[in-house]
Simulated scan of single mutants.
Amino acid sequence: MTRGIRGATTVVEDQADMIIENTRRLVEEMVTKNNVSPEDVSHVFISVTKDITAAFPAKGLRKLPGWTYVPVMCMTEIDVPNSLKRCIRVMMVVNTDKEQASMNHIFQNEAIHLRPDLACKEDSTL
């Protein structure tokens, strides 16, 4: 069966190296905390807020070993007034036998404010 793993992070500035590195770190933590290998990943959607334009965050995934053939698509998040700025969101769809409640969703930097309920669950597993 497939399950979704959510992740989100923010960057301080719209700089290519920062976007790529923060995305890489986020996905690495998502993979580690959920014991996922690239072969388990069906596909990944990445959305960014309209103030991120310097790079495709998917480049961060390409730096990970074994991710060459994982389908990844980047898109722009809807522009909701007063929403979190400079935010990168990841939806990773994986093949797994785990229950939905056992998936660890990862929120880094200012993105922890998006889903404090899930961020707290993740912290309690440490």
Rank of each mutant, 00 (worst) to 15 (best):
residue 13 E to P: 00
residue 2 T to D: 08
residue 6 R to N: 13
residue 23 T to P: 05
residue 26 L to T: 06
residue 70 V to E: 05
residue 95 N to K: 01
residue 40 D to C: 06
residue 27 V to K: 04
residue 8 A to G: 06
residue 60 G to Q: 11
residue 42 S to T: 09
residue 53 T to K: 02
residue 77 E to L: 14
residue 68 T to F: 07
residue 17 D to K: 03
residue 78 I to G: 04
residue 118 L to I: 04
residue 58 A to V: 07
residue 74 C to M: 11
residue 17 D to N: 13
residue 11 V to R: 00
residue 5 I to G: 00
residue 92 M to E: 00
residue 2 T to Y: 12
residue 100 Q to R: 14
residue 91 M to S: 13
residue 46 I to M: 07
residue 1 M to Y: 13
residue 76 T to Y: 13
residue 53 T to H: 07
residue 3 R to A: 07
residue 31 V to M: 08
residue 115 R to P: 07
residue 106 I to P: 02
residue 88 I to H: 01
residue 75 M to C: 14
residue 73 M to T: 13
residue 14 D to P: 01
residue 62 R to H: 07
residue 13 E to A: 10
residue 35 N to G: 03
residue 7 G to A: 06
residue 42 S to P: 00
residue 99 E to C: 04
residue 14 D to V: 11
residue 63 K to P: 08
residue 25 R to N: 13
residue 111 A to K: 06
residue 50 K to T: 03
residue 65 P to E: 04
residue 89 R to L: 05
residue 74 C to W: 03
residue 14 D to R: 05
residue 64 L to R: 06
residue 11 V to Y: 00
residue 112 I to G: 04
residue 101 A to N: 14
residue 110 E to V: 08
residue 51 D to C: 02
residue 35 N to V: 03
residue 78 I to V: 13
residue 30 M to S: 04
residue 22 N to W: 00
residue 31 V to P: 03
residue 68 T to M: 12
residue 99 E to F: 13
residue 81 P to A: 07
residue 119 A to T: 07
